[in-house]
Structure formats: structure tokens, C-alpha cells
């Protein structure tokens, strides 16, 4: 199976500059639907799904490989190699911010700039560090995911298909959902919320931008400032209106922030 199939890679536009958009937890590449139209005319937009999300090949899931964010970063590098990309501007939402950072540290020759939307190098509070969550919050979140197993498959499937005009597609996909999907999602949640990549921030050698919503319940301005203080050439843009998904709730502001940073 090639990487294009494995990660359900989609390419829009044929500009000289590549923008790679990486979705966050609980979403797939459709999460960028309100953003990509602003860039597809002038850039080459690369979209993909992580294993366990969207239309990525679920059979390619390896528990060991994806037991930490490095496994997902390796996927990003695989995609760059497969598409022979260079000077990529990587835009990651939520956990993808750190995944992109790790990929840029591991294979800096592929990347030019990084854009983090709602990032966090560590979600769980620590001594002298505010991440916003306690360990119990993670366990409670996993409980909520368990409680919403049926909802997980039922509500996510149509979004995965990305074709609300043809809900039958979503119904078919819902039927094909298996417990493993939830298991992978829960494992992903554990990996995300137990990760600690504060030590990797100083290793990022390319310019980066943090876009942080003021209303974000998952991360916060404090976390954005922590990243700013510990990362070489990092800028911060705070969005007044944005929650955890400002690219959905305030796409114009996100497009504007991205444009300002990359032009």
C-alpha cells in the first residue's frame, strides 16, 4: 500500500509553494473545508488523514508505531517523501502542531515554516507548568468517549464522508465502523494528552506561528505564551472569537493570520 492510499492524501491546486494541512484529534481533513478555498488558487494544498481517521487505511494502524507522536510525525515525513515536497509550510491543528514540530526536527529539509492552531506541548499540568488539564480529566474524557461509542460512529461517519447531500454514504460507513475505530481514537487521546514535548520546542529551527483562540477550553493563552518563550522565532496571534477550532468558528481570522505569516 502506498502512502497516498494509506493516508488518503488529497492535493488541491498546483502553486509553487506547498501548504500542508494536518487535522487534529476527532476530525479528518474535512475540518479544513472552510480554509482551503482561500489558498487553493495560489498554493499547492496537501490534505491527508491520520491512520484511524477519515478514509485513511485503518489496517495500517500499528499500536507500537502510534504509541507516541513520533509515529504520526513519521507519517508526515512519509508524505513529504512520497510527494517529493520541499519548503513545506505545515499548518497543524491541536495535536498536529506538535506532530509537525517533531517532523520538522526529524527532517528539517522538508519544512520552511510551521503554523500551530490551538497547540500544546503538554496538556496535563506539571510543577511550574500550566497545561490546563489534570490526569483525571483525561480518564473522564475517555469515559465520555466510551459513553458516546454509538454517537462516535453515528455522528462521525457522515463527516468522514464529507458529503452531507448524500447521507446514505454516511449510513453505509456507519455500518462499517468497528470497535477498533473507537479503540484507536482512545489510544490517540491517551497519546496526545499524556505527551510532553516541552523539551522539543527549543529544537525547532524554523519560524513558527501560534494561532490561539481566547475561548479555547483545551489550551490557553498561557500555553501559547509558554511555546512563544521556549521556541526560536515563534509568533503568537490571539483570536478574540476563536474556541478550540477557530478554523471552523472564525475561518476568516485564521486565513488572515496564516496569510500574514506566510507572505
Amino acid at each position: 500500500m502506498n502512502i497516498t492510499e494509506r493516508n488518503n492524501i488529497k492535493i488541491i491546486g498546483n502553486g509553487a509553494q506547498t501548504l500542508m494541512f494536518a487535522h487534529g484529534f476527532g476530525c479528518d481533513q474535512n475540518t479544513w473545508n472552510l480554509i482551503t478555498p482561500a489558498f487553493s488558487d495560489t498554493y499547492k494544498v496537501v490534505l491527508f488523514d491520520y491512520i484511524g481517521a477519515g478514509h485513511a487505511a485503518i489496517d495500517a494502524y500499528e499500536k507500537q508505531r502510534y504509541s507516541n507522536l513520533s509515529g504520526y510525525a513519521k507519517d508526515v515525513i512519509d508524505i513529504c517523501e512520497e510527494l517529493q515536497l520541499e519548503n513545506v509550510i505545515f499548518i497543524g491543528h491541536c495535536v498536529s502542531s506538535m506532530i509537525g514540530a517533531l517532523a520538522s526536527i526529524e527532517a528539517p529539509h522538508f519544512f520552511k515554516k510551521l503554523i500551530f492552531i490551538g497547540p500544546s506541548p503538554r496538556y496535563i499540568n506539571d510543577v511550574d507548568y500550566y497545561g490546563g488539564m489534570e490526569r483525571e480529566d483525561l480518564e473522564a474524557l475517555l469515559d465520555v468517549m466510551d459513553n458516546n461509542y454509538l454517537g462516535w460512529s453515528g455522528t462521525l461517519a457522515p463527516a468522514v464522508v464529507g458529503n452531507p447531500d448524500r447521507p446514505a454514504l454516511g449510513e453505509d460507513l456507519t455500518k462499517s465502523f468497528r470497535a477498533v475505530d473507537l479503540d484507536i481514537a482512545k489510544q490517540f487521546a491517551r497519546v496526545i494528552f499524556l505527551s510532553d514535548h516541552r523539551g522539543d520546542l527549543p529544537l525547532i529551527k524554523i519560524p513558527s506561528l501560534t494561532i490561539q483562540g481566547k475561548e479555547d477550553v483545551l489550551t490557553s493563552e498561557r500555553v501559547a505564551n509558554y511555546i512563544h518563550e521556549h521556541t526560536y522565532r515563534n509568533q503568537v496571534t490571539i483570536l478574540e472569537s476563536g474556541g478550540h477550532c477557530p478554523h471552523l468558528s472564525d475561518p476568516e481570522a485564521v486565513v488572515s493570520a496564516i496569510n500574514h505569516f506566510i507572505q
Binding site: 452531507p164 477550553v217 474556541g243
Partner: peptide, 12 residues
């Protein structure tokens, strides 16, 4: 914030 809100945006 992570699951339902994005779904409402995408699906309605």
C-alpha cells in the same frame, strides 16, 4: 469542543 462543535460546523 473537540468533537461535537466541529461536527456542528461541518454537518449542521
Amino acid at each position: 469542543e473537540m468533537i461535537v462543535h466541529p461536527l456542528l460546523n461541518l454537518k449542521g
